[in-house]
Structure formats: structure tokens, C-alpha cells
Design a protein around this nucleic acid. Structure first.
Lengths: 360, 360
DNA sequence: TTGAAAGCGCTAACAT
DNA sequence: ATGTTAGCGCTTTCAA
């Protein structure tokens, strides 16, 4: 492997001139420049990125702290990231390593967290006394951070409100919510959950009836609630979370919906994969969508292409969100001022899974 | 950021001793060792991975040269990779940058290519006069490499044979093949294609009837054939391939199948996403699977959970394949001898999409 | 068992 | 416009 020293010798100049010529920085004689470039070509020179990094204290890499690429939303976030990253000569590396202490030993200039939960956890551990450029995708949830972290935010509180209003406008009064998580959690609160609760001002019994929760904590005695999280057992005995199967969660939710004879006319699902699973199971149980039950979701990712009916859903914009994550993170890395929150718009997409009850 | 020098000063020793203590290498006084570790802890020391890399000429990173994470198969390959990578303290970074010349300027010790086509292209360009640890996932295809590259191979020639034999055993005689590519290509030949051709000894007219090709090159006058490849236009005018929508290709293939009134009783699809799209479109055209037409695919990835009927398919093992890719690549990196080809087994999975014609 | 010292390949300030 | 020099943080050899 040729180094700049080799080029310098071949071209009869010093390494500094070579560096300047190769980097297009500072003065360098036009003629010598040619000679240097030619020498570099002949030697098949490629710069050593490690050496550059050590000297400049920049790696040109950022980390997307993501575990679950089976989740289409994460894939689209990631695609947005690499797009802006490459415009800035950056690479996005992926890792869902749960061990935060290793973040500092990775060759990255900053980290993007995929949601508020991970960010919170990070800040409460390794991130507590270690300043490192960090941004987070967020969804308007009620999570408090130990330290200010720029949010690239898509407000699903408002999103849920809009979706519920849409359903209401079409005559739906009893609207269930199929959710993978408990309505109260130690970590904080998902904005969709608060949105749904606030919209109805629900409490007590009503909640039991329309909040279809498939969390294993909500159903400690139901063995079916255990099989949605793919995990891996490490050599050291630790368990690593791998992926969350929302499709199956949706199926299970629909099963519960039927078993409990829920009288909701519409069901809002946590995301589209859940909605798709929900629809599938309904159909297997003899109910048609939207003829018998209306279903709506969130996200609008490419996974919807598998849906039998075009889904009605709240379309987020993960690609844009991913782009913004990188943009803001690079600002942080480069010491520029950044906003606390960058809002990402959403919009409701009308599909074929919601029935208009007024047109009867 | 504390360095080993800081620790050395605090502990009253030299940096070499600190290094030995921290790396568990070489001699170091047991007592001093404690003092050093304690000092490191107090200073919140984390080693600088860049400096380590520069000195050891190892980055601890390998590149998975993958563009398309919307393809479930790639995601499962990748998951296998990170699993063995982390056991060896390696990271897998992802990039689908088409510009091979940049590979050498990435901070990686080696590269994994996802298929023979990319490998071939790489070897004909940047890889020609540049030795770099490289392995490739492969599928038994007729691709010739300019240089020997270890293959982690799943032999889809045999796989196709097995699947066709399976269909034949169930009474199918006319078996179509839905394929995204031309039966002849400048790059080489996909093993599934050769397998299908060889099985029937097909030529000329028969091929036209049963080889359902949705390539834009096969259908230059059909505008529908143009919309399956997601591309991105870069600032510099280059086009970058992003993703291939096999599901839509499958739908289109089924559409052609119907339009051409193909009399095949069974259709083998290039992969499961195509098969899923094929089934969907058949149904929309009023044909039931497997009552009217039998359908089989390849891969058996998690995307099959979206399928309405459990698919009959040839299950590969992308996770194992990904694991082996990393294993072999690390062998190459570490100068160990490796096999030219590592075979990955497959097996036929009976689902509900193939009808047994003998049971009539 | 320890420590000094010479790199690894490149950058960037500074003197020329 | 060019070259010298001192790092960047760590590894590793070798002499003590």
C-alpha cells in the first residue's frame, strides 16, 4: 500500500505538498500538482482513512442505533439517513448493540437513536456523564430526558387525534385501539396512547373494553401473549432483543377483539403491520374489513404493499425523518446551533379499510 | 477524554505498562495492575478505536455491500452476519455505494458481497489490481470471476431441480417460471434459470410459453415493465439503484400469465415475494391458489408471514449463510486457509399453495 | 517486570 | 510556494 511518503519520494517533493495537492488545500505549484497526481495514480494510491481520522478527530461515520431491520419503518428511516449522509461524505453504520458502554469505542462521530425509549435509557446510563453528539427520532411521546437532546419529531399525539377525528367524521363512535404496550409504562408514554385516551377522556371500564392490549404484562395468564418478541441468548447469558413481530401482534389483537365480542365499529392499530395482521385475523374469523369492522393504522411503509386492501392510515415520512436526523446530527457534530425539535409532517391517507357509516 | 498517558501519570507508571494492563497482554505486576485499572475507572477512560486501528492495522469492521434492505433476504443475511461478527468483536457496516473505488477508503478489513453479480462487477473494476479480503454469498450461478473469491454458496440449481421434481411428483407436467430477468444475460446466468431450462430441456417456442419474464428488456414495448426498480438520481447525474420490488413483479407476472392464457398447472416464482405477488394478482383475476393454479417460490423469509396461504417454497438459510460469510471472511482477514466454496443446505417446505393433481 | 522509543499514515502550524 | 516538525493515541520491540 503506497503512502503519501512514497508519492513524495517519487515526485521529489515533501509529504506536505503531496497532502495539499491531494486534498486541494493550500498552495501548490500547478505543475508539481500534476506530477504528484500522476505519481499517486501510478502507485495506485488510496488514502488511509484511519490515519486521516486519527489526525482530524473525525471518522466520517455516524451510528444508527437500531436493532430491528425487520421493521419496515426503520428501514425507511435508514434509507433517508444514508441519502443525506452520502451527500456529506458520511457513512451510516448500523448496530443494535444494547451495551451502551461500547458506543464510545465505536468509530463514529455521533449517534442517532430511533425513538425516545432508547434515548432515555442511554441518557440514564452511559450518556449521563459523557457528552457525545446525539439526536433522536421521536414521536411526541411523554418521555423525559436527563439532558437536552435534539428531537426529530413526528407528533403522533396530533396524528392520533386526526385519525380519530377522521373516523368520527365517518360516523364511528366506538373506536378501539390495538396496542402492543400497557397504557402506563415505567419508561414514559407513547403519544398514540395518550392521544387515544385524551380523545375519549376514557377511564376505568371503558378502557378495558376498547383498549386491546397484547402486552405480555397485560395478559400474564395468556400464553399466547409471549411469542412476539424475537430474542437471542448470548454466550454470556444476556438476552438481546432482536425484533418485534407486529403482524402477529395484530392477529392476536383481532383474536382478542373477537373473543371479547368488542362492539367497536372501528379499530385503530398501533402501526400498519399490526393493522395488516388485525385485518388478516378478522377475515379468518369470518369478519370482513371494512364491511364489518373498520381498521386504520399508522406509518404507511412499503410493507403495505402486501396488504389485501389498500390501508387507511396516517402516513408518516420516515425517509424525511431519517434525512433530518442526519442533518441535525451533523450540525451538532460541527458545533453549529440546532433547534430542540424539528417537526416532521404527517398526513392521513384514505384507503379501503374504513367504512363510512353515514352512507347507509 | 482521558488517554493512556493520563492513566500512566496518575498511576505513576509508563504507558506501556498501562497498555499491557488494559489489554491483558504481557507482564504486569498484580498490584500495579489494580492501581492502573482503578485509575482508568476514575478517569472514565475509554480507548480510542481509531488509534488502535492505526497501530494494529485492523478496524474491527467489515462491510456488507448491500443496497436493498427492503429485500427480506438481505435483512436475514445481515442478521446472521452481525451475530457471528459480534462474537468476534467485529462490526458489520452496511453500504450499497455502487462506487467500488471508495471501498478502499472505508474503514473496513474486508467486504461481503451479497451475490455473484456484484462480485463479478467488483472484480472487473476496482478489485482487479487490488487485493482485499472479500467473500461472496452465491447461489450456484454461472458467473465467472476474474480472481478466486470464496463463495458461501446455496446451490439453487439443485434447489430448482428439487422443487420441480416435487411438483412433478404431484402430477404437474406444465410448469411455468416467473422470472425477473432474461434467460440470457451479459453478466452470467442465475442458477434457477439454468435449472429450470435444463429440467425441461426447453427450447424455442416452449420457452416463450412458460418462461414468464417481466424484465423490461424482455418487454420493451410494455410500459408496465418499467416500474419495478426504485432508483435515485444523484446530484452528479448518476443513477443509483435502490430496491427491486419483487412483489409487484409477481403481480405483473400473474397478469401476463392470465393475458397469455398460459396452460401451466403450476408456476415457480423467482422468490417468495414474487410468489406472494403472483398469488395476489391471480386471486384478483379470479383464479384461486392452489385450486386453479399451484405456486411455489424460493427463500422462506419472514416476509412470508404476510402471505394469505402458507407458501410452498424452497427454504434457504440466509441467517446461516450470513454467519458463514463472516466466518470465512475473518479467516481470510486473519490469513487462515479457506475453502473455495462453503455449501449452505436448503430444504423444501410444504405449504398450502401447491395442489396434488394425483388426488383428483 | 518495566519503560523508552520508534512507529502507524496523515494533518496542520510554522518557519523558510 | 514548500518543507520541517510535532503531534493524534495506541502498539510493540527491545534494552534495562
Amino acid at each position: 500500500m503506497a503512502t503519501r511518503k512514497d508519492i513524495a519520494e517519487k515526485a521529489g517533493v515533501s509529504v506536505s505538498v503531496v497532502s495539499r495537492a491531494l486534498n486541494n488545500s493550500g498552495y501548490v505549484d500547478a505543475h508539481k500538482r500534476e506530477i504528484i497526481l500522476e505519481a499517486a495514480r501510478e502507485l495506485g494510491y488510496r488514502q488511509n482513512p484511519i490515519a486521516v481520522s486519527l489526525a482530524t478527530k473525525r471518522t466520517g461515520q455516524i451510528l444508527f442505533f437500531c436493532k430491528d431491520l425487520k421493521n419496515a419503518f426503520n428501514v425507511e428511516l435508514y434509507e433517508g439517513m444514508i441519502e443525506t449522509a452520502r451527500k456529506n461524505n458520511y457513512m451510516v453504520v448500523l448496530s443494535g448493540e444494547i451495551d451502551f458502554s461500547r458506543i464510545r469505542t465505536l468509530m463514529v462521530d455521533g449517534v442517532i437513536f430511533p425513538n425516545e425509549v432508547h434515548t432515555q435509557e442511554y441518557l440514564n446510563n452511559e450518556g449521563k456523564n459523557f457528552l457525545f453528539p446525539v439526536v433522536t427520532a421521536s414521536y411526541g411521546g411523554g418521555y423525559s430526558f436527563a439532558r437536552a437532546v435534539p428531537r426529530i419529531n413526528c407528533d403522533l399525539y396530533k396524528g392520533m387525534m386526526e385519525e380519530l377525528r377522521y373516523l368520527q367524521n365517518r360516523g364511528h363512535r366506538k373506536i378501539a385501539f390495538a396496542c402492543p404496550y400497557l397504557p402506563k409504562s415505567a419508561f414514559g408514554l407513547d403519544a398514540r396512547i395518550s392521544g387515544w385516551l385524551d380523545f375519549f377522556g376514557t377511564a376505568g371500564k371503558e378502557l378495558d373494553r376498547y383498549y386491546i392490549c397484547v402486552s405480555r404484562y397485560a395478559l400474564p395468564d395468556d400464553p399466547r401473549a409471549l411469542r412476539f418478541n424475537e430474542e437471542q441468548l448470548l454466550e454470556d447469558g444476556r438476552k438481546v432483543f432482536l425484533a418485534e413481530d407486529f403482524f402477529s401482534k395484530g392477529r392476536f389483537a383481532a383474536q382478542l377483539f373477537c373473543e371479547r365480542k368488542c362492539d367497536a365499529t372501528a379499530v385503530v392499530c398501533f402501526n400498519d403491520e399490526m393493522a395488516q395482521g388485525f385485518c388478516r385475523q378478522l377475515r379468518e374469523n369470518g369478519l370482513e374489513v371494512p364491511e364489518d369492522v373498520s381498521v386504520a393504522g399508522f406509518d404507511d411503509t412499503y410493507a403495505n404493499r402486501y396488504a389485501v386492501r389498500r390501508p387507511t392510515t396516517l402516513a408518516l415520512n420516515p425517509k424525511l425523518q431519517g434525512q433530518k436526523c442526519v442533518e441535525v446530527l451533523l450540525d451538532v457534530i460541527n458545533g453549529r446551533r440546532v433547534k430542540n425539535t424539528t417537526e416532521i409532517p404527517f398526513r392521513l391517507v384514505e384507503g379501503e379499510t374504513v367504512k363510512d357509516l353515514r352512507k347507509q
